[in-house]
């Protein structure tokens, strides 16, 4: 039987991030086929609550306990993870395609002289533990199935919402607490400040539902309409490059080739023409809704449901109607 399937667990304010639970859930599904052990690796101090919340999602939890890991820096993480990987030689190491994953995994893979497939939208495993990763290329115009040579661990980062979270109450992971011997003089970078994004909404890459407007919204203040809709749906608000370049919206909310790839369960686009640069960023969303006054707008080619109409009429009505419908659910 091959060695373990490990997931690098991300946490924020002492809580485990959703993407990590998604990956652990996938790991458990894989382990049913391969018999491998599922390991959760997390780094930082004061993580008792996070560690305990992970027990139904793994067989082993490796908690590398040191204050130097919060906030994340690649140097500290490398120093913490590398010895553990060398000792246990997991067969697979997964992480989220997040700001941390994208910063750390390429460097870690180079250091370990192993293979790494970034930003995956699917993973599958054979009984012998060989991993195959699915990922978009050219912004999603084509996809590739990527395999690994004999190197281990097989490393991959995966987008949000690719796997479903599934708790396994029958598992109760063994917690292995590790106190690393860290040489803080090796840590060259220092995080000296943090500017929290306004509001409490999830990043558009993390949200289950993203609602967005483009230039069709005509003025920055009209985004209030979209925000009201987002509040009802507990959604995050995205946009196009056009409004970002106008200075109406923040770059962090730009969807597309020069912005972010999102993989929401539901994406709703209002007054967005559907330029290739934009739609490349929504290729892995499950359901797409488009509302545009132009019946020939390209966005309709990428949508599941479309309404040819005026967003200024549709959006407020949608918000009100949803309030009613969702209230009736409760």
């Amino acid at each position: 039987m091959p060695n373990g399937i490990w997931v690098l667990v991300e946490h924020q304010d002492g809580k485990v991030k959703k993407i990590s639970l998604e990956l652990l859930s996938a790991g458990i599904e894989f382990s049913k086929k391969t018999g491998q052990e599922v390991g959760a690796v997390l780094l930082g101090s004061g993580l008792e609550e996070a560690v305990n919340s992970l027990t139904p999602y793994a067989d082993k939890i490796y908690w590398i306990n040191d204050t130097l890991f919060i906030p994340y820096t690649s140097e500290a993480y490398l120093a913490g993870i590398v010895p553990l990987v060398k000792e246990h030689q997991p067969s697979i190491l997964l992480g989220g395609a997040t700001s941390t994953g994208k910063d750390l995994f390429p460097r870690l893979a180079m250091h370990l002289q192993t293979g790494y497939v970034p930003d995956c939208t699917g993973l599958s495993i054979e009984e012998n533990g060989k991993l195959t990763a699915l990922r978009p290329l050219f912004g999603g115009k084509v996809f590739a199935e990527v395999g690994f040579s004999e190197v281990r661990p097989q490393m991959a980062t995966v987008r949000n919402n690719v796997f479903l979270i599934k708790e396994h109450p029958d598992r109760s992971a063994q917690i292995i607490s590790i106190t690393p011997s860290m040489d803080s003089s090796l840590l060259k970078k220092k995080v000296v400040g943090f500017e929290k994004a306004e509001g409490t909404k999830l990043d558009i890459t993390e949200a289950d539902i993203v609602v967005a407007a483009g230039r069709g919204i005509k003025a920055p203040e009209h985004f209030k309409l979209i925000e009201d809709l987002a509040d009802v749906l507990n959604a995050s608000v995205g946009t196009t490059r056009a409004t970002v370049d106008e200075g109406w919206r923040d770059l962090k909310d730009q969807i597309g080739k020069s912005g972010k790839n999102i993989s929401a369960k539901l994406y709703m686009a209002f007054g967005i023409s559907g330029a290739i640069h934009h739609v490349l960023g929504i290729g892995t969303c499950k359901t797409v809704v488009a509302v545009d006054t132009d019946p020939n707008a390209l966005i309709f080619n990428y949508a599941d449901y479309g309404i040819v109409g005026d967003l200024f009429q549709i959006v407020p009505a949608l918000t009100e109607e949803l309030k009613k419908v969702l209230a009736a659910d409760r």
Binding site: Q113, T114, L137, K141, V146, G147, F148
Partner: peptide
Amino acid sequence: STIKIQKYLPPPKRP
């Protein structure tokens, strides 16, 4: 190379 593209695929088709 440590990773190898085994197969190219067209993007999943939307209905």
